[in-house]
Simulated assay, not measured.
Amino acid sequence: QVKTNPSDQTWSSVCEADLDLQDAQVVCRELGCGAPSVLQGALYGDVQTPRWSPEFQCGGHESALLDCRSSGSARSSCSPGKAAGLTCSGGDEFRLVGGASRCAGRLELKVLGEQRPVEGYYFFTLKTAALFCEHLNCGSAVSLQPTDVSDQSMWRINSDCVQSGSDLWSCVESWRSSGTLNLTCSDIPEANLEHI
């Protein structure tokens, strides 16, 4: 629910049709709750409060939902079962799979409940990979190896977007590709390197 007018203390539900993945990314970030994992109508019951909201048009990089552009027009209500429900992951949802250790393997992300490999041929750098190694408590990035697989849905991460200081999840988009990414981290947490 949102307060669409800060001077008004009334909370309103958002219609499911007016909230997409980019909007959900902004909401989860604003709440400090990681990435979106489930977005669907009436996920937590159909509330009886007024359901009035504009259609949000977030780019995914905004820090707050009300910073996003909106359609300007608002629906007076949603049909039953169409108030948006959102579950955030509570934290970063990524892992390395199929490698010799937990700090090596194919990089996968889970966004809106969909676990997919990361697309490996465009915009991805060792500097961006280092962020994943660090979050996995696996030290620094040692190597990136693009690998051919069957054409499938993947998540693409734009390194330029990440390096510009944007939140990781606002730099992710759905993509079809036949190239995924194997990442090897040093397996030594950075904090311990100076003691060796």
Score class of each variant (00 low, 15 high):
Glu194Leu: 12
Val97His: 08
Val97Pro: 00
Cys138Gln: 10
Pro80Cys: 01
Leu181Pro: 05
Thr87Lys: 07
Cys33Ser: 13
Trp11Thr: 01
Glu114Phe: 13
Phe94His: 12
Cys15Arg: 04
Ile188Ser: 12
Cys78Glu: 04
Arg176Leu: 15
Cys133Trp: 02
Arg69Tyr: 02
Ala191Leu: 13
Gly34Gln: 04
Phe123Val: 00
Gly113Asp: 09
His61Leu: 05
Asp167Ala: 12
Ser37Ile: 14
Cys15Asp: 04
Gln115Cys: 01
Asp148Met: 13
Leu96His: 11
Arg106Gly: 00
Ser76Val: 06
Val47Leu: 02
Val162Phe: 12
Ala74Asn: 00
Ala100Arg: 13
Leu181Cys: 07
Thr10Lys: 06
Gly113Gln: 11
Asp160Ser: 15
Phe56Thr: 00
Tyr122Cys: 07
Pro146Thr: 09
Pro54Trp: 07
Lys3Gln: 14
Leu19Trp: 01
Gly45Glu: 09
Phe123Asp: 12
Ser153Leu: 15
Pro50Asp: 12
Leu112Trp: 08
Val47Glu: 01
Asn5Lys: 09
Asp92Arg: 01
Thr4Glu: 12
Thr128Pro: 00
Ser164Arg: 06
Leu109His: 06
Cys68Thr: 05
Arg75Lys: 13
Thr125Ile: 07
Val14Gln: 03
Pro36Gly: 03
Ala64Lys: 03
Gly81Arg: 07
Ser79Trp: 05
Ser53Gln: 05
Cys171Trp: 09
Gln1Tyr: 10
Gly99Arg: 10
Ser77Lys: 05
Cys103His: 04
Asn182Gly: 03
Val2Arg: 05
Trp175Val: 03
Asp160His: 05
Val38Trp: 01
Arg51Lys: 11
Val142Arg: 15
Asp160Pro: 01
Cys68Arg: 06
Ser101Leu: 05
Val118Gly: 10
Asn137Gly: 10
Gly98His: 08
Asp151Gly: 03
Leu181Glu: 02
Gly85Tyr: 06
Phe56Gly: 04
Glu173Cys: 04
